[in-house]
Computed example of a mutant assay.
Amino acid sequence: MSNAPVDNSRRRFLTIATSVVGGVGAAGAAVPFIASWNPSERAKSAGAPVEVDISKLEPGQLVRVEWRGKPVWVVYRTPAMLDEMKKHEGNLRDPNSDEPQQLDFAKNYHRSTRPEIFIAVGICTHLGCSPSFFNGGFGEKIEGTEHGFFCPCHGSKFDMAGRVFQGVPAPLNLEVPPYTFIDDTTILIGEVGGVA
């Protein structure tokens, strides 16, 4: 055995080098693991807001878009449609949209931020069928009402504000999704904001 002094600098160097390499390896393994917690691009796009250009939307016309895998209707209501909605409020289950699933800005007779533009998720609140749009001829479903939505699956009826009539299977008004007007002709469905 030699009583020569021990060189601790080499030992210290090896300890530091091993620690650095181990730390880099742990960080390299952690980055993909932590990144896997983030939603995929497909999941992000499925829930992402959708822009809708309504510059070419004609009075009385309905366009369909998809948001979060659901059909969303954008309807340009005519003055006659708006007037008609006030005449049958006594026949509606929830005319003032008092049910808790409603957004605050949808708690009026037209259920929208702009009376002439109606936006709703096109899924019946009974069992999830998609109602049909009647722009005239709805009177055979509800007397004295020419415009509305009729669910062919079980006969639920909704007026032009998506409010459900009494005596039908659907328990709630159609869902109004969160949306905001970016400008006069562009709507962002999926985010609530101010009105342009």
Results as ranks from 00 to 15, higher is better:
93 R>H: 14
46 A>V: 12
191 E>W: 01
49 P>R: 05
110 H>K: 04
117 I>Y: 08
27 A>W: 10
63 V>S: 09
4 A>N: 11
91 N>L: 15
119 I>W: 04
85 M>P: 05
21 V>D: 05
82 L>P: 02
62 L>E: 10
176 V>C: 03
25 G>E: 03
130 S>T: 11
53 D>M: 10
177 P>D: 00
107 K>Y: 11
99 E>R: 08
147 H>L: 03
67 W>P: 05
138 F>D: 04
87 K>L: 13
175 E>L: 12
126 H>E: 02
128 G>F: 03
136 G>Q: 01
36 S>N: 15
139 G>N: 11
156 S>D: 08
157 K>V: 12
184 D>A: 11
108 N>V: 04
13 F>Q: 10
143 E>M: 11
12 R>Q: 05
92 L>S: 01
169 P>F: 10
187 I>K: 02
20 V>Y: 00
158 F>M: 08
2 S>T: 09
29 A>D: 02
119 I>K: 01
3 N>D: 13
28 G>N: 09
103 L>V: 10
26 A>G: 01
127 L>K: 06
135 N>W: 04
193 G>W: 02
1 M>W: 10
27 A>E: 07
38 N>I: 13
94 D>R: 03
181 F>P: 02
150 F>E: 05
44 K>C: 04
194 G>W: 02
154 H>K: 14
171 P>W: 13
125 T>C: 07
20 V>G: 01
57 L>D: 14
133 F>L: 12
65 V>Y: 08
138 F>K: 07
41 E>Y: 12
96 N>Y: 13
164 V>N: 10
78 T>M: 06
88 H>G: 08
138 F>Y: 13
157 K>M: 14
113 T>K: 15
68 R>Q: 13
162 G>H: 03
119 I>R: 03
152 P>G: 00
75 V>C: 02
62 L>C: 07
28 G>T: 10
155 G>M: 06
90 G>T: 07
75 V>A: 05
11 R>W: 02
115 P>R: 13
178 P>R: 07
87 K>C: 04
9 S>L: 15
180 T>Q: 14
62 L>N: 06
23 G>C: 10
196 A>L: 08
39 P>V: 04
102 Q>F: 01
173 N>R: 04
177 P>Y: 00
